[in-house]
Amino acid sequence: MRTGAAAGHLRYFHAAVEYAHDDDLLAVTLPFLLEGVANGEPSIVAFGERTAGLVRAALPAGSGVEFLPGGDMYARPSSAIRAYRRLLAGHVAAGAGQIRIIGEIPVSAFGNTWDWWARYESAINHAYDDFPLWSMCAYDSRITPPEVLADVARTHPRYAVGGGRHEDSPAYTEPRVFLSESRPPVPDPLQAGAPTVSLTGPSPADGRRAVHAAYRGQIPAPDLDDLVVAVSETVTNALRYGRPPFHLRVWAGDDRIVVTVSDAGAGPKNPFAGLLPATEAATGGRGLWITHQSCNHVAAATGDDGWTIRLIAGNPAV
């Protein structure tokens, strides 16, 4: 049974909390959590260390609120979706009629990697629709860039404004529309120079060899293995679903490896590809899902010359 502001709502109830003072965050968070506990609903916090500490200190002892390691939950967008879906399914199997979660994406995501987190915030409006979830995503306006807050308004149907009240976001954009927009990634500085490896018409095996050729210890060996798999899957998708000519380029830096794969096609037709768990019927979806699990940043955009996907293993926040 749904309660609170989500009462009568059949699907995912998704809200943003934009705050400028810690007291404002607590004024929304504490009633949300304590009301959930009182109703017998799983009530969960996925904050970073500082804000989690604020909430812990303000809650009564033995409150019954569960705390997740916020940094671990938000390692990568597709991983977060996978972890949350597993968590939600477990609570539903245990009989939960509603689940309450308040979380925050780490501030480190507000830089060069924000594009895929904006896509995450949009995609989860669909990804969690089969669960009785009421969640709030907290954004501290003191440290959140204006362009990020603009995306928050477009990816959250509503704002929690205190007193249990919510207001609709006039800028909210349906996920299929938002995710279909071309959002060119912030260029990596390495891409201003000549690539370490450049291939036209590569095979998946060529892609794997190109990554190994660029490797000189920039990333841990397991991350190298993941990147090799991701590049192989990406080249396979390009050859299977894209249009020639096909190009693969690799740049090697001190702390990262950057790979782009491009073709003359329009890219995936499914705007959720890569972010949501793939099915056998999803065209190219399984390879993109694997790729999003395997890299530290994945971004793609359509231009005049076709579609390009960029993979980064290592440190993408430069």
Rank of each mutant, 00 (worst) to 15 (best):
H247Y: 03
L276A: 07
G265E: 15
A273N: 03
R249N: 15
A266S: 14
V231A: 06
P268T: 11
D255I: 06
S262L: 00
K269S: 15
S262P: 00
E233Y: 06
P222G: 09
N270L: 12
V231H: 05
A278T: 07
G253C: 10
H247M: 04
A264C: 09
G265I: 14
A282L: 04
A266C: 12
Y241H: 14
P268V: 09
P268M: 10
H247N: 05
V250P: 01
T236L: 10
V250G: 03
A273D: 03
T279F: 15
W251T: 10
E233V: 06
N237T: 05
P222C: 10
D254W: 12
P245W: 03
R256F: 14
T234P: 05
N237H: 03
L224D: 08
D226A: 15
V228S: 13
A221Q: 09
D254A: 15
P271G: 13
T260C: 04
P268W: 09
G274Y: 11
T234A: 12
P220L: 11
N270M: 08
A278D: 06
D225W: 01
A230L: 00
R256E: 15
A278G: 09
T260K: 04
L248H: 04
L248I: 00
R249S: 14
A230H: 00
G242H: 07
P220T: 11
V229C: 12
T279R: 15
A278Y: 09
P268F: 11
F272Y: 15
L224N: 10
A281S: 02
G242R: 06
